[in-house]
Simulated scan of single mutants.
Amino acid sequence: MSDPLARLLEEAELEARRLDEALAQARAARADQGDDEHDPEGATAADDWSRFTALRQANERWLAEIARARTRRDAGAYGVCLVCGQPIAPERLAVRPTADRCRDCAERRA
């Protein structure tokens, strides 16, 4: 059986590398353009920078969530709700392998 957390980590790390490259390109574009605020062609380099920065920050949060799930797994607590201590349904873990709450506790939190 494959490890869904390892697969998620691999995908998230690949996305981090892609976003880092996009940020590097946006940084270069910002350095090359003097006045991108008046570019009639569309989005400015600053817009690209802001978008990629936000995506990279979201990716960092996702990587941290995966790391926490792997820590729970290594400690033998994976699949156990942090709130009520009951097992998290396998169907929930199949959809969201990083889930740390059962459906009931997650709904109460929202």
Rank of each mutant, 00 (worst) to 15 (best):
V95A: 12
L5V: 03
A75E: 15
Q25H: 09
P97D: 05
E21I: 02
A89Q: 07
C84K: 03
I66G: 01
A28V: 07
A45M: 07
A12Q: 15
E11G: 02
A46I: 08
A110T: 10
E11V: 07
A29H: 09
R73C: 05
D100Q: 08
C81P: 09
S50V: 12
R70C: 04
A6L: 03
D48Y: 12
A22W: 13
Q86I: 04
V83P: 08
T44R: 09
R68W: 06
L9Q: 14
W49I: 09
R68D: 12
V95W: 05
F52K: 10
D74Q: 13
Q57N: 05
A58I: 00
A106H: 08
C102K: 09
I66Q: 02
P90A: 00
L8Y: 07
L14H: 12
L9C: 06
E15R: 15
R72F: 02
V95G: 02
E107R: 01
A29I: 03
G42M: 06
M1H: 13
L93R: 01
D48I: 03
E60T: 15
R109N: 09
E37G: 09
I88F: 04
A69D: 01
A6K: 07
R96D: 10
Y78R: 09
G42Q: 02
S2E: 13
A45C: 11
A99P: 01
A67E: 11
A12G: 09
A110G: 14
L19F: 00
A26T: 06
D100F: 04
R96C: 08
G76S: 04
Q57R: 14
L19H: 00
R96K: 15
R68V: 02
P40H: 05
C102F: 07
A75P: 09
A89I: 01
A77H: 15
V80P: 03
A45L: 04
L14V: 05
V80Q: 10
T71I: 11
T71K: 05
E13Y: 05
A58S: 03
E107Y: 00
R68T: 08
L82G: 14
R101I: 11
R92A: 02
A89N: 10
M1R: 14
D48N: 11
E13W: 12
A89Y: 01
C105R: 09
A54I: 06
R56E: 05
R7T: 11
R61G: 08
E41M: 09
R30K: 13
E60L: 12
D20L: 10
E37I: 05
C105Y: 04
E41T: 15
P4W: 12
L63W: 03
A67K: 14
L55G: 11
L5P: 15
A67P: 07
